[in-house]
């Protein structure tokens, strides 16, 4: 029972981070029908930039309050990632908006490779550790161990998602985004500036990704130029699980995937008689992705997306 609760909590924490990243995939897909393969790398860049700022500040004065230092890192990382995503869309995706489907996907893979290797050149191949500067408290809930950081992550993610929900449902920009997702042509005729809406979508997604990047590196205590790849794939799987293009779906899918993964990793040994262990954690996201696409391609909350030649 303790294992179950513990894994449920771990899954909830991971899942809320997945959800944050999944939102970026789902928003872009909803509008452009493009799998923005580079989104995971934007997340990684968020973590890297924030860690660099944190390292610099601590170098200047190691006595600075930890929360403030991390906040400063986030405040730099978020606009940096927004700018990056803005540039990616403008340079790599916009020229291909009318090209055949495979072309922008291949470009997206290209951008992803570029970002990953640029990060490797800038920050090196080694793991960068997240300094232990955040206040750490821990509690025991139903026999499971919960840290203040975990609670903070979940609360922050929930707040961000609520904010995004408000933005999409209640603001002018949100309305324009929803209109563009329905039909670019009609939105254009109604006076929506499509290019701006698309840029805004990328930029908002990047802001969420940057925060997710910082959270995930704080959670694991590590960042690495390669971290965006797996995180991105899992978040994409989460978006598909929830129903790609659907914002509530991304949130639900993220949480579910996190929980499936945590419970799966916790129990796979028991299920297979010890043959497979918890190193197979990464496999679950892919199995979920494949099962969803095969049996319910529209995802839990989405509209139909399967084959149209």
């Amino acid at each position: 029972m303790e294992i179950f609760v513990q894994q449920l909590i771990n899954g909830l924490v991971l899942g809320s981070i997945y959800a944050l990243v999944a939102l970026g995939y789902t928003m872009v897909y909803g509008i452009l029908e493009l799998i923005n393969f580079a989104h995971g790398e934007v997340t990684m860049m968020g973590a890297m930039v924030a860690l660099t700022v944190i390292g610099l500040l601590l170098g200047l004065n190691p006595e600075l309050p930890g929360l403030l230092v991390v906040l400063a890192g986030v405040l730099i990382a978020v606009p940096a990632c927004m700018l990056l995503a803005f540039a990616i869309e403008k340079v790599a995706y916009r020229p291909l908006r009318r090209a055949p489907r495979l072309a922008p996907l291949i470009t997206a893979i290209g951008v992803s490779i570029v970002l990953q290797n640029a990060a490797m050149l800038i920050w090196g191949r080694q793991y960068i550790s997240f300094p232990q500067i955040l206040p750490q408290m821990s509690f025991t809930v139903l026999g499971a161990h919960v840290t203040s950081l975990q609670i903070f992550i979940v609360l922050l993610c929930m707040t961000m998602m609520a904010g995004l929900w408000w933005l999409v449902q209640k603001t002018r920009l949100g309305r324009a985004m929803r209109a563009t997702a329905q039909s670019k042509e009609v939105a254009m005729l109604m006076g929506v500036d499509i290019d701006r809406v698309i840029s805004a979508t990328f930029v908002i997604g990047a802001a969420l990704a940057a925060i997710a990047g910082v959270l995930v590196s704080a959670y694991y205590g590590l960042a690495h130029y390669y971290m965006g790849f797996m995180l991105g794939l899992k978040a994409f799987s989460a978006a598909v699980l929830g129903g790609i293009g659907n914002i509530a779906g991304a949130m639900l899918g993220g949480l579910l995937l996190g929980i499936i993964e945590a419970l799966g990793a916790g129990y796979i040994g028991d299920f297979t008689g010890g043959f497979l262990g918890s190193h197979y954690q990464d496999v679950f996201a892919f199995f979920v992705l494949i099962l969803v696409l095969v049996f319910r391609p529209s995802g839990l909350l989405g509209e139909r997306v399967a084959s149209r030649a």
Binding site: L102, L105, L233, F286, L289, I290, L293, A306, S307
Partner: peptide, 16 residues
């Protein structure tokens, strides 16, 4: 299992 999928989904599933 991937045959029903459209091009970009196919890419991600095969990657998986």
């Amino acid at each position: 299992p991937t045959l029903r999928l459209r091009g970009d989904y196919l890419a991600i599933v095969t990657l998986g």
